[in-house]
Design a protein around this nucleic acid. Structure first.
Length: 415
RNA sequence: GCGAGUGUAGCCAAGUGGUUAAGGCCCCGGAUUGUGGUUCCGGUAUUCGUGGGUUCGAUUCCCAUCAUUCGCCCCA
């Protein structure tokens, strides 16, 4: 019986690893260039971290976590990374680092869900977190960074939706108002919405059930939603954000019903969605989580961040050009070939050769199948005369030169 | 967790209740012992996801199971 990869997991193979590397390299270059530093936290954490951090009312915590007990300690494979980063922030005393602190991460996340398009049990996220800035300028920076990254990946046709769900104070008022309006007809809502009614009535607003949608389609409710129920501070924050987005020429849609599913969000929430992604169309989600550091035992620190799903990005990203080898050494003198190969490699020229010492024609064939830029021919003729032939496999032109000049040829003509 | 579709080689895929299961790509070998990417020839499935049932006989029909895809839900 052949052992297969667990349901909802995928191998990243030699055929597609270059796509991952492409995305990761772009992320690293862009984020480091913006003074974000990479952070790597454990793949598993104490289960309690997610209960307290992500929230008990969320599906993620309630039914999607991979939890196991090891020596009476309950551990969980991380379903998302903000909680872990915040934990590390507190534990390592990062509040003493120069503020604001800007972090980015990449890596696998785990959620026990039914796999479908754009949804795996092990999936990968790239994300950023910015600590220490209260003002909306931080939200704007982080959103702009997301747009820049998507742009780097040549992804277009996306739309950005933003909302402000208020701070704990004004949100409570809002919740109460919604409850009051909805309460009389509560029986007619779907079972999920009945649960949401007690746990988090905001989530009722983006229910996709048609009946619920109709029930919520009342003038009274619209008025509440569209009125700026949020307090002055939150409202100003939202105005400032919109202002910055305008300055940055970022198009956005205000979606008053946008509610992120995780409990830690405050004020700004946003989502970037793509077409052609089926039901799982969110490629980026994030927002502000001013209360989380304190909630996890640190001192109050405002923060904002986002995460992107790499598999989803990949689904809408134009496939980048694969990595190719620059030189392929063709020779039937294996000793000399070896030396030449490693000389080229140590000079930064990606090089390969035929380990089986096959016929000349086969080696050349291999070179062209690997789509090498050059065949570096070191045959009997060359050895006799102390030269090397460099053949450009695209143009089919070749020249025979002394060995010392080989790097000149290869480096000069490729640029 | 619920509903629906699919499952033939590494990949794409035709096919039928009955002796040897088309074809294409990739890969390998040869034509071609120093000039490739074109062409030509040849090779690669004791077997049709797995287990069971119906049948004289199943890859084909039935059941189960697993995997996968799509939708619900949720999220990135």
């Amino acid at each position: 019986m052949i052992i297969k990869a667990p349901k909802g997991t995928d191998d990243i193979t030699a055929q597609n690893s270059y796509i991952w590397q492409f995305m990761e390299n772009k992320a690293q270059n862009l984020f480091e260039n913006s003074n974000y530093k990479e952070i790597r936290t454990p793949i598993f954490e104490s289960t309690e971290l997610f209960h307290r951090g992500v929230g008990n009312s969320t599906d993620i915590v309630n039914k999607e976590m991979y939890t196991f007990i090891q020596k009476e300690r309950s551990l969980t494979l991380r379903p998302e990374n903000t909680a872990g980063v915040v934990r590390a922030y507190i534990e390592n005393g990062m509040h003493r680092l120069p503020s604001p602190l800007k972090l980015w991460y990449k890596g696998p996340m785990f959620r026990y869900e039914r796999p479908q398009g754009g949804r795996k049990r092990q999936f990968h996220q790239i994300g950023v977190e910015l600590f220490g800035i209260q003002e909306a300028i931080a939200d704007a920076e982080v959103i702009k960074l997301a747009m820049e990254y998507l742009n780097e990946l040549n992804i277009s046709g996306l739309s950005l939706e933003i909302n402000n769900i208020g701070c704990p104070e004004c949100r409570n008022d809002f919740r109460d108002k919604i409850r009051k309006i909805v309460q009389p007809g509560l029986n007619m809502f779907c079972t999920d919405c009945k649960i949401r009614y007690t746990k988090n009535p905001l989530r009722m607003l983006d229910c996709k059930n048609e009946t619920c949608k109709e029930l919520l389609d009342t003038d009274e409710l619209k008025q509440i939603i569209n009125s700026d129920y949020i307090c002055n501070e939150c409202s100003n924050h939202f105005d400032n954000l919109k202002n910055y987005l305008n300055i940055l020429d970022i198009e956005y849609i205000i979606n008053k019903k946008l509610v992120r599913g995780l409990d830690y969000y405050t004020k700004t929430v946003f989502e970037i969605t793509g077409n052609n992604l089926g039901a799982q169309n969110a490629v980026c989600g994030g927002g502000r989580y001013d209360g989380l550091v304190e909630m996890l035992g640190g001192k109050y620190t405002p923060a904002v961040g986002w995460a992107m799903g790499m598999e989803r990005l990949m689904a809408i990203m134009p496939t980048p050009e694969s990595n190719k080898i620059k030189a392929f050494v063709v020779s039937n003198d294996i000793n000399k070939a070896l030396k030449l190969v490693f000389k080229l490699r140590s000079n930064g020229v990606s090089t390969d050769f035929d380990l089986l010492n096959k016929k000349f024609v086969k080696q050349l064939d291999k070179a062209s199948k690997l789509k090498a830029d050059y065949a570096v021919i070191l045959g009997q003729n060359e050895i006799n005369s102390g030269t090397i032939t460099v053949k450009n496999l695209k143009t089919s032109s070749q020249q025979t030169i002394v060995e010392d000049k080989i790097l000149d040829i290869i480096n000069e003509t490729t640029t």
